[in-house]
């Protein structure tokens, strides 16, 4: 199976998901904040979602990492590269569990994921799919320099906005710090 690399930023570590993350993830998916990302899910559905996150790495060679806040060691959510069947293009996705939102952790983790996509995997572009009502997630996309670029309707997640990230060249010109 594909080894999952570990990425480190000043405030978060991106590492392989593990079973210890499950309870926190299931609690998030049971709650109202999951409504923008396909929730609410039962505990059983959330377990399959976690297993699916891990299997995504094997099928695509990339996937979403479990994000750990370095200061507390706490599991903060899932961030990374996502391209299941039926997705319009590979995307950079982020989901922060309750209690870790609003502190810039998603932006920092998603920037590290984008750097991995552009630098290591050689992606030439990237999108993020965000529900129109998910203003917190839109703020993250904006901070990363992404711009709205059409809409996409998914058979399960419904209608979402496509946010287009700056290309590898634009990111290099502007420098990461321009968006952080």
């Amino acid at each position: 199976m594909t080894p999952i690399p570990t990425l480190t930023t000043p405030r978060v570590t991106l590492r392989a998901p593990k079973l210890a993350d499950f309870d926190a993830l299931a609690a998030f998916y049971a709650g109202p904040r999951s409504r923008h990302v396909g929730g609410p899910l039962t505990r059983e559905q959330a377990w399959r979602a976690l297993a699916g996150e891990i299997g995504h790495w094997s099928l695509r060679g990339y996937g979403r990492w479990a994000v750990e806040e370095r200061a507390s060691g706490g599991f903060a959510g899932m961030v990374g590269l996502w391209f299941p069947e039926g997705w319009p293009e590979p995307e950079i996705g982020w989901t922060l569990i309750d209690g870790f939102e609003g502190r810039g952790l998603a932006t920092q983790a998603a920037l590290a994921a984008r750097e991995h996509a552009y630098g290591v995997l050689g992606w030439s572009t990237a999108i993020s799919l965000i529900a129109s009502a998910n203003s917190a997630s839109q703020a993250v996309a904006r901070r990363m320099g992404a711009r709205p670029d059409g809409r996409f309707t998914h058979e399960r997640f419904g209608e979402m906005d496509i946010w287009r990230h700056p290309s590898p060249g634009d990111v290099a010109d502007g420098g990461m710090e321009a968006y952080a």
Partner: peptide, 11 residues
């Protein structure tokens, strides 16, 4: 179906 296949691996 794709997510279930991924979950088979994650299992």
């Amino acid at each position: 179906s794709w997510m279930l296949y991924a979950a088979e691996i994650g299992h």
